[in-house]
Design a protein around this nucleic acid. Structure first.
Length: 205
DNA sequence: CAAGAGATCATCT
DNA sequence: GATGATCTCTTGA
């Protein structure tokens, strides 16, 4: 084997629980450039995460956990590294990754990914076949990846849904206020949405 | 292209 | 009974 070949090997390491057991803002930033993987009997879909939002705890009026510990928010109160998937607007599912210590309710919303693998499968699950429109929004990416509430509570360290680090270099990102949280008082303007700078696959600039 | 409405239901009041 | 961490389509300039 040539010496240069080892540099070409694509390392893909599944993120471990300790990755998620940190401050939600830190996890939201670090998830940019990681790869969301969903294994399914129909096939595997992979997307490079380009947009996230942090929902940082019970004091965050935009975070569902601000309403307290209920059946719906129970997963966010559980251990880090699990999926919090909820249904909204009568149509769409939203994928979040639970962060921080157990009993501290916080999570990162995955808002957009760049399609990498399983693109035909994503197209068949969605009507609009344009590559840029397959997964550039939280509802769209759940459609494209076949994610619904059956994955609520799934362990990202031991299920068909997980995130890989493929050894991308550190990325430049932008922070903006979160989308669709106008009701959240002073929390609506905090810069808790993170985008990869220059990506064409974000939901909006 | 921007703005607005409609779709549709789980969750909480 | 109201509303929402959205998306798509229609309308009109």
């Amino acid at each position: 084997m040539r010496a240069s070949q080892s540099a070409d090997i694509h390392r893909a390491l599944k993120l471990t629980r300790s990755f998620y057991e940190r401050s939600t803002v830190e996890v939201a930033k670090q998830l940019l450039g990681k790869y969301l993987v969903r294994e399914h009997r129909e096939g595997t879909t992979v997307g490079r995460i380009v947009e996230t939002e942090a929902y940082v705890g019970p004091q965050d009026l935009a975070c569902h956990a601000a309403k307290g510990r209920t059946a719906r928010t129970e997963v966010m109160f559980g251990p880090a590294g699990h999926a919090y998937v909820y249904f909204i607007y009568g149509f769409y599912n939203m994928l979040n990754l639970v962060t921080e210590a157990e009993d501290y309710p916080a999570a990162v919303l995955i808002r957009a990914v760049e399609p990498v693998e399983g693109i035909d499968l994503m197209r068949s699950r969605r009507k609009n076949g344009l590559l840029r429109n397959l997964a550039n929004g939280p509802g769209k990416l759940c459609q494209a990846f076949g994610i619904d509430r059956s994955l609520n509570g799934a362990d990202l360290c031991a299920s068909e849904l997980f995130v890989e680090d493929r050894d991308e270099p550190t990325l430049k990102f932008i922070a903006t206020p979160r989308i669709g949280v106008d009701y959240a008082g002073k929390w609506k303007t905090k810069p808790l949405r993170f985008l990869i700078r220059g990506s064409e696959f974000v939901s909006k600039i």
